[in-house]
Simulated assay, not measured.
Amino acid sequence: MTSTPIGPRWRKALGWTVLAVLVLITLFPFYWMLRVSLSDNRVLAANADSLLPAGFTLGAFERVLGLASLEEARAQGGSGASIDFWRYLLNSVLTATLITAGQVLFSSMAAYAFARLRWPGRDAVFFVFLTALMIPPIFTALPNFVLMRDLELLNTYAAIVLPFFFMTPFAVFFMRQFLLGISREVEEAARIDGAGHPRIFFRIVLPMSRAPLATLALLAYITAWNEYFWPLLVGQGEGVRVLTVALGVFRSQTPQGSPDWAGLMAATLLAALPVIALFVAFGRRIVDSIQFSGIK
C-alpha cells in the first residue's frame, strides 16, 4: 500500500494550526498575568484553577498607582506594602534613555571605524572585541561593582548607566554589518570636496543609517528596560531604584505573610506595557533590519 501525500492546502492548514498553537502558548503567560491583576487577592487562592478573574476588581491597579489608602489596600487583600510606581517608572525611563543614547552614538562610531577606516590590526582588534560576546555578563559584574564603589558612585544614576553607556559588542557588530553594505562612492565624493571623517560620519553615514539606528535604539532600550541584576547591585536606593528592582522589593514586602499577587501582577503588567507597545509598533522593522545585517 502506498500512502497518500498531503496536499498543499492541508500542509498550509497544518502549518497555520501549529503556528496558532505556539502563539497561544506564548501569549498565555501574559493573559494569566492580566487575569491575576484583575482578581481580588482575598479569593485568588480559592479560585486558582479558574481562567477568569477571581472577583473582578481594579483594586490591584489602584494600589500600585497609589490611588488606594493603606486601609483600602488591606481591605482589598493587599499586603499593605507601598510602591512609588511613578518614581520608579521615571528612573527606568531615564536610565534606559541614557543607555540607549550612549550605545547608539558610540557603537555607531566604533562600527564606522571598523567598517570604513583602514588601520593596522583592525580585523584582529575586531575579532578580539567580538569575543566579548561569549563572556557571560556575570563575570564582569564584580569588577564593575568594585569600580563603581571605588569611584563612590553607588546608588547613583551613573553607576547604573556607565557599564552599558558607551558600546556593546552586539551593537558594534550590528552597525558594522550595515555600514559594510553602504557604497563608498558618496564618501569618496565628500572626501574630494575636503570633508574629513567626522563630517562624513555625522553628515552622510548617520543620515543614511536611520533604519538600523532606530532598530539598534529599540533593542538597546528594551534590553536596558529589562535589566535587573546590575541595577539591583548598584541602585538599591529609593531615589534611583528602577521598576524591575522595585517589583522584587514589592514582592518581598509581605507584612500579612502572603504576597500581594494581584498587585504584583498589576505592577508587572504596567511595567511591561512600554516594551510591548514598542514591539507592536516596530517589531517588523527590527526583524527586517536584523535580516538585512546578516545576523542569523
Rank of each mutant, 00 (worst) to 15 (best):
S39L: 01
P198E: 01
F106M: 08
A110S: 03
V125A: 14
L278P: 03
Q236F: 08
F145C: 05
T2M: 10
M208E: 10
L270Y: 03
L22C: 13
L89A: 14
T131L: 15
A13K: 11
L264W: 02
F114Y: 13
F139P: 00
F127S: 12
I83L: 15
P259K: 07
L44K: 06
L142T: 14
L24D: 02
A115Q: 03
G7V: 03
V36M: 02
R42N: 13
P231F: 05
W16M: 11
Q76P: 00
I204Y: 01
R184Q: 13
R251P: 00
L180V: 04
E188N: 12
D193S: 08
V234N: 07
D40V: 03
L269D: 03
S258L: 13
T168R: 13
D123C: 02
R149V: 06
P255T: 02
D288R: 14
F28N: 01
S289V: 03
G55L: 04
A81S: 10
A246R: 11
W86E: 04
G263R: 02
M208I: 10
T168N: 13
S50M: 07
A277S: 04
V172G: 02
L22Y: 09
F30N: 01
G196Q: 09
T100H: 05
D123V: 07
Y228F: 15
M1R: 11
A75C: 00
D150N: 15
P5R: 11
L44Y: 08
V161S: 05
V275N: 11
T244C: 06
A158L: 12
A96E: 05
F166C: 11
V21N: 01
T26I: 12
F164Q: 12
R176A: 10
I25Y: 13
L219N: 10
L216P: 10
R251V: 04
P163F: 01
F201K: 05
